[in-house]
Design a protein around this nucleic acid. Structure first.
Lengths: 247, 247
DNA sequence: CTGTATTTGTCCGTATGTATG
DNA sequence: GCATACATACGGACAAATACA
């Protein structure tokens, strides 16, 4: 009754006995979502119903739901109910930021590695970015970069604009995974940035680097885009290295 | 009493009252790990001790621990204790594979996007790979690729060898994040591969592509490496596209 | 090998907080 | 204000797994 479909459909041990009760329940909830073709935002059965259907106690169901909640597979709203989650990369952000804080003592290896990956991804997709460029996107990049420059010259931070810029770069590619990875990696970097501090004049340097990227993209000059992106990460790398030397 | 340290140290809302009990407890456990400079594998207090120290019921502590367990921040062993987890990217794999199964109906967008990211990452790091190449790594790549070829000609699968190959590519770079991302992305792909099926002769084509990559890497010919990697993903992309057309 | 202690796993009952009507 | 439905939180009891004497 519980499993009416023919094949296993879900490879992860299905609901084999080897796992603990809550693991089985978690797997069964995932199967429930898949079988019913549910989408993010859809309402799941209540805890009590899940207890009945899955023949498990409240504790097991609750712990299973909390695990899935941590993975953003389900979303729980107090007094409302449990819904299918957004399946975002929030868990990745959480895990990576925590790792960053753990390795903060010896050096900033995690941050350094993260910058390398970001740099490589943006340079690697430079050609596709230029190809998929639309006029609106070009203007948006330019205006965002300009705002960064004015803020930098006023001595103000522009973290939000930085996020907008890097997300806008990847926007038109239509690759949702890449877009979410970009956002996730940026968030990890932003979470660790306050502990790094800033060198004098680095703010304006970073803003100008963004302006150069926007110009190169609008000019559809792929090598220039790659160079501008590489240059953009130079001050960031030096900040990380500086912090590493201090410790 | 509970929080004797001066600063917040952890940005994530610290342990503000706005969150639920288990969120507070989870944050406090994370702080505990950071404050005590604990490393993966270290033993955490027992559930009972956590209840005492954090002034929470056992249910709340357990749900918090299960959330952290889902993120691989802690690892629980039945009858033994709770330990600091490996902070692996397992959660990312779980989330992405689940998303892949969800979008399996309409098309294989997730898989397609994943291949694009993998391709870009490997091509982007091609130069660094060649630079960091050691003799042992070169031989390992070659022998792995050869094994793939012999297996392919015997009509056998070689998923494990494929994993070894792509991990070996990134091994010498010393970028742990990149290495784990590679492993995670490969796992997601492997989880979805069985549903895709194989075209005739595609096995050997893939094996040969790996041989070509190994040769180009050993020849330290960066453009050839990039081409070989690109060629390697061609049959994979066609398989995904074929599946998409069938549905 | 046999208990015993420790620790996590599971289940139950009850009370509280939250949102809807 | 009240009733209903839901998630939240707590504490207790017993089972299962592991380690050790």
């Amino acid at each position: 009754m519980v499993n009416s479909e023919p094949g296993p459909l879900w490879s992860g041990d299905a609901h084999g006995r080897g796992n603990s009760r809550r693991e089985q329940v978690a797997d069964q909830i995932k199967q429930l979502i898949i079988r019913n073709r549910m989408r993010p935002g859809d309402l799941l059965p209540t805890e009590g119903e899940l207890c009945d259907v899955l023949h498990a106690s409240r504790s097991s169901v609750r712990e299973a739901v909390k695990m899935l909640n941590a993975l953003d597979i389900v979303e729980v709203r107090h007094g409302h109910g449990t819904y299918v989650g957004g399946m975002s990369l929030g868990p990745l952000v959480e895990s990576l930021t925590f790792r960053g804080f753990l390795s903060r003592d010896d050096d900033h290896r995690v941050m350094s590695e993260l910058v390398d990956v970001r740099d490589t991804l943006e340079q690697g997709f430079a050609e596709s970015i230029v190809e998929a460029l639309t006029d609106e996107q070009g203007e948006r990049l330019a205006t965002t970069a300009d705002k960064m420059l004015t803020r930098a010259r006023a001595g103000q931070e522009f973290i939000d604009l930085d996020r907008d810029f890097h997300l806008a770069l990847m926007q038109e590619l239509g690759n949702q995974l890449l877009l979410q990875l970009t956002g996730a990696f940026w968030e990890v970097h932003a979470a660790a940035a306050p502990t790094l501090g800033h060198a004098a004049g680095q703010l304006e340097e970073t803003a100008i680097a963004h302006v150069r990227i926007a110009e190169a993209v609008r000019a559809k000059d792929v090598p220039a885009v790659r160079e501008a992106i590489a240059a953009h990460y130079v001050p960031i790398r030096s900040t990380i290295a500086q912090f590493h030397r201090r410790a």
